[in-house]
Design a binder for these strands. Structure first.
Lengths: 181, 181
DNA sequence: TCGCCCATGTAAAGAGTTACATGATTAA
DNA sequence: TTAATCATGTAACTCTTTACATGGGCGA
């Protein structure tokens, strides 16, 4: 996973490991986190497999290692990108907790849910700030899909907040979902 | 994570590893998957830590190992259940792909998104079947929270399908989200 | 008797986290 | 000068997946 993402970040230009980390945080960071402890070994593996080449460019007394994608790496990346999108991926820790909430005392339950709702609201704020940042930019058609993931995050967070509110008030569950007609 | 879930499943009665696997599939399975390869070692760890005790009850020529939660295990479980619910958990593989879709040829992109939408629709059908199964049951108030996770799954999957359709048609992204007024 | 579900496990490999360890540059 | 950020990495650990290995019970 991280290997594919790292390759993707290197599509357009050569980057250092640190750059890649920043790009992940600022871009895909909405739904994916990477640590240095996983990133640097991943870059090493990719280099060993021949997907990347490195060039050390000392700037001042500081070592900087730029990674460059090979043709083989490019193929690998597009293979991943074109591979099937089945569902089922993310395990949701919080839902797992809620699943057992019937066994929890009402006050704590109430408090946990409110906490979760607030965390989601804060997160939504961050996402909306991001949205605003991109809103004024030109050539948005060049990164429609990149942006679409941000909007996905916003949608889902909004729904999650609605859901929290709904079950905090113990409203009827079937009212939560949309019935077609 | 899996350890906590296994403990949760053992709250009410003693179960075998196999039982726990089934319970996870049928309950929390909406958003969490566990394999035997992770479950059995997890149960072993929990036993070593003193959270579980085991009792072998051979039934016929078949060995069956029932797990029973100790008081210590119960405490551990409720500690987990009461621990903070921050956000950020699930890495979403598919979103990671979509993030790079600007670099993909339109036809493949189109196809992948449609594929994803269809997978989500199939998944939604499964969830709605589950919903129907629970719909007729009595004492629904005893598992309101358990059920709420199913409804969460339905909500989110519906939103995801909407999002797929929206971006497949390349509609304006800001129209996706709800603006308060 | 054949296939499916029940039932328990191990081994190898993969992926990631956290903490540690080091040091340079830059802006307040 | 000091704190933040830039920059790279390792080590130990945890968790999980996939594949393998074994065998009983049961219904058609």
């Amino acid at each position: 996973m991280l290997e594919s993402i790292a390759l993707g970040m290197l599509l357009e230009r050569d980057l250092t490991g640190y750059d890649i980390k920043k790009l992940i945080e600022n871009g895909i960071g909405v739904f994916y986190k990477a640590s240095f402890g996983s990133l640097y070994p991943a870059l090493k593996r990719l280099t060993q497999k021949g997907y990347l080449t490195t060039s050390e460019k000392p700037q001042g007394g500081r070592q900087k290692i730029f990674y460059h994608m090979t043709e083989k790496g490019r193929e690998e990346f597009f293979d991943w990108l074109s591979s099937p999108m089945d569902i089922f991926e993310g395990t949701n820790t919080h839902l797992a907790k809620v699943y057992f909430f019937d066994n929890l005392e009402p006050e704590i339950r109430e408090q946990k849910l409110l906490e979760y709702e607030i965390n989601n609201k804060n997160y939504l704020s961050k996402l909306k700030d991001l949205e605003k940042k991109f809103d004024g930019m030109e050539h948005k058609e060049c990164f429609y899909y990149k942006l679409s993931t941000l909007y996905y995050g916003i949608c889902i967070t909004q729904k999650t907040i609605q859901w929290c509110r709904h079950i905090r008030m113990q409203k009827a569950l079937p009212d939560l979902i949309e019935r077609e007609r």
